[in-house]
Design a binder for these strands. Sequence first.
DNA 1: TCCAATATACTCAAACATGGAGTAACGTAG
DNA 2: CTACGTTACTCCATGTTTGAGTATATTGGA
Lengths: 211, 211
Amino acid sequence: MAKLTTTSYAILGLLERRTWSAYELTKYMQHSGIRGVWPRTESRIYVEFKNLVAHGLATASEQTKQGRKRSVYKISAAGRKGLRNWLLSPEGSFRLESEPLLKLLFGDLDDGATHVQLEHMHAQLISETELMLEEVNRSLENGFYFEENALHNSQLLSLLTDLLESRSDWLNDMRQSGRRKTPKSTSNEAAKIYRQQAKRLASLLEKLQDQ
Amino acid sequence: MAKLTTTSYAILGLLERRTWSAYELTKYMQHSGIRGVWPRTESRIYVEFKNLVAHGLATASEQTKQGRKRSVYKISAAGRKGLRNWLLSPEGSFRLESEPLLKLLFGDLDDGATHVQLEHMHAQLISETELMLEEVNRSLENGFYFEENALHNSQLLSLLTDLLESRSDWLNDMRQSGRRKTPKSTSNEAAKIYRQQAKRLASLLEKLQDQ
DNA sequence: TCCAATATACTCAAACATGGAGTAACGTAG
DNA sequence: CTACGTTACTCCATGTTTGAGTATATTGGA
């Protein structure tokens, strides 16, 4: 039997809110805030539901809806307990992955690369922002899918917006400085920026530590 | 033969800078800026080197260094070509994963959870910042490991610092408002925040679009 | 000097995860 | 009535992580 992972608990948490069929949940996850902090694919959901049942954290029941049959899952008492336990465990970290940023690190190896990647990131940032805006507007028009966690959702939303803004500002600077003729500056320029960041990081650390 | 992935090219890019043994590269990747945008585990490196050789993008040679033997890898002409091609391809996206943030979304299900997770995130943010600061100071003292991409590295560093700051500011707000008595506000409060974010997102989108 | 810890240099297995293809039954617009 | 979209999944190859395991060489301390 496969062990319980973060993904298992993510789904268990959603099962605490209501009962779902795997298909329904895949649709919900595609546009809910969860996508922003724990993105998982469709097929994973089906597997994890079975896993939860195998661990006794959920129960499955066959239903027939409009001719088609489906499995509907429900959280169990053990599931609720396991979920609360998980919610109190201080584990897991913040992880970021970006292929375009990775390519940017190799920008010196090809004259066109930096420009291509910056434009790509710009386009991506626009569509990410559009998606979030759509989702926010949908919630404002139709009401919140779950009232219970609307506040927590909105707080997460603030963070995600902050991060989008940071990325946008940075990208703006990068594209601006790309348009000016490149100073071929190399390590002197770089050292200057490093010193700046060292200062920022040091004061950030101080701020964090005496809070 | 396994296909070439982003990870393959990440390693190929580092192979363009110098020749490495797999072991050396794992050590380098643990503290280089690449960790921040494309984190991969040790064992992956060994597999990917072999994969690159299988595709003809690199060559391996056995060496004996201080009694122990090891494989040292070198990029091939085909490797250089493949790398440049990859660097120009506008693919890949920005992806974020955070178990503590996920738990925060379920904060309404357990009274202690939000506090535990915020404190955990605070501790993590401190150690992330410390790590980055150490790395920056090391570069300033010992010089850059690769002069060629020092500028690109410093630009990425700026972004990562921006993101750390955003997270820190947000976290500060959250912990502050957690200390005040919770207003039990729910959806009214949430709707207000949603409207705020909708505005921010809309103006962000506008800014992005007319750049 | 001997010993233990650490560094070098990997290999391997189990299981999580993705992405895409495939299956099948029902509903609906033209 | 037919084609397309939606519902409701399954399956496969392979990428990826985690952690343990193997083995040799160097180094610092009792």
